[in-house]
Structure formats: structure tokens, C-alpha cells
């Protein structure tokens, strides 16, 4: 049985996860992408109140499609967005807010890997585009904050049940599956170039 993890995630919980493991998640997950990162860091600097507590949180790089059914929001499609867009913002976000997990796709660059190691956070890869599968793991939408940023950029508060599968792609010990793949790709590139007659 794959491991199940419940939010909020303590530093010890995060550090117990190993790159390559498959896990499923239960509890509250916040969505947040470009604008949430920018706003949260700006609000913190100005001493303005941030509507949710990111400590130990699972932050999901996701801009969902939401639908209102009888005054309640329902997640229609909620797959991950490209995490590398947040590369320049994430190390600062992890340091200031101390989330326990970032959920996204495509991985993140070395400064984020370093911040995860330092502060005890993991990167969980959810299959990009698998938005209906993701929505199935969202039991209910508990609320929305910063809705004025637009549907994709708002903070959606999701109550998750068996959300996944999630691959621990960057752990809190400096290991990254993406970095491992990159090493192999560099090696394979030589063969691909030879096939194309490139020097």
C-alpha cells in the first residue's frame, strides 16, 4: 500500500519522505501559483494580513476550473501547472512561510532543492494534465481567497481525500529525480546527436 500523508505536514513528516516514493494526501491543500507567490511575499513585507496559514501546508501549483453548483464551488479539473515558473520565488516562499510540501509538475531548480533541504519541505510531482484524476481526490472546496486575482490565480482551499498518486520527486535531503534524469539525458544527448549527424 502506498503511504498516505495528512496535512499539515510537520518538518519531521517531510524529512521522512524519500525521493522516488509514491504517496497519497489527505486534508487541506491550498492552490497557489505565480500571483499567490508574488502577493504573499509582498503582503508579508508590508505587514499585511495573509488569509491562510502556509506553515506545514501543502501548496499546489494549480489553476483549476471551478464551477458553482447551488452556491458551492466544485472542482471540475485541477491538474498541476508548470512549477518552474515559480523557480525565482519559491526559495524565498519556503524560507518565509515554511510549507511542508509543494505539489506541481516538471520539477524546480537547484535553489528550491536547497531551500527544501534547509527548511524541511518536499516537492511532490502530480502528472501534468491529469486534471480529472486530480479533481477526483478533492472531496470539497472549503473556500477561496484572493479571488480578485482571477480563477486560475486565486487561493483555493481544497479538502482532499486520497489525492494522488504523488511522486516524491525532490526530498528534504537534496535528492531530485529530475536532476538524476538530467544526468542521464546529458549522456543520451551524445547518441541522439550522433544519429542526426551532428558533432
Amino acid at each position: 500500500m502506498p503511504k498516505r500523508i495528512k496535512t499539515p505536514i510537520s518538518e519531521a513528516d517531510a524529512r521522512a519522505l524519500k525521493a522516488g516514493e509514491t504517496i497519497y494526501m489527505d486534508g487541506i491543500v491550498f492552490t497557489g501559483r505565480d500571483e499567490v507567490h508574488i502577493h504573499a511575499l509582498e503582503y508579508l513585507e508590508k505587514g499585511k494580513k495573509i488569509p491562510v496559514d502556509f506553515k506545514g501546508a501543502a501548496l499546489f501549483h494549480c489553476g483549476p476550473i471551478m464551477k458553482k453548483v447551488e452556491e458551492k464551488w466544485v472542482a471540475v479539473a485541477a491538474g498541476p501547472t508548470t512549477s518552474s515558473r515559480m523557480n525565482s520565488l519559491e526559495p524565498g516562499f519556503i524560507e518565509k512561510f515554511r510549507p511542508g510540501a509543494i505539489i506541481g509538475k516538471g520539477g524546480m531548480s537547484q535553489p528550491t532543492v536547497d531551500a527544501m533541504k534547509e527548511f524541511g519541505c518536499v516537492y511532490l510531482a502530480f502528472t501534468g494534465g491529469a486534471a480529472v484524476l486530480a479533481a477526483k481526490g478533492i472531496k470539497s472546496v472549503e473556500g477561496v481567497e484572493w479571488f480578485e486575482l482571477g480563477m486560475p490565480e486565486a487561493i483555493w482551499i481544497l479538502n482532499c481525500d486520497n489525492f494522488g498518486p504523488l511522486t516524491v520527486a525532490i526530498d528534504a535531503h537534496g535528492n531530485s529525480l529530475f536532476a538524476d534524469v538530467n544526468v542521464k539525458v546529458k549522456e543520451n544527448e551524445k547518441k541522439a546527436r550522433a544519429k542526426l549527424g551532428l558533432s
Binding site: C62, I65, V76, A77, G79, A130, V132, L133, K136, L177
Partner: peptide
């Protein structure tokens, strides 16, 4: 194992989208 699981998620998602008449990806 790891890439197989990624492709399984994609295949399952394709089937679920058809069954539920739902967009397969949130980025339309």
C-alpha cells in the same frame, strides 16, 4: 515503474474525462 505510473495516470485521466464529459486538463 515511475514513467509507467505517469502514463497510467494519463490513460486513466483520458478515460475519466470521456466518462464524465469533463475537460481532460484544467488548462483549456
Amino acid at each position: 515503474e515511475v514513467p509507467k505510473m505517469q502514463l497510467k495516470a494519463i490513460v486513466d485521466n483520458i478515460d475519466m474525462a470521456i466518462k464524465g464529459n469533463t475537460p481532460m486538463c484544467q488548462d483549456t
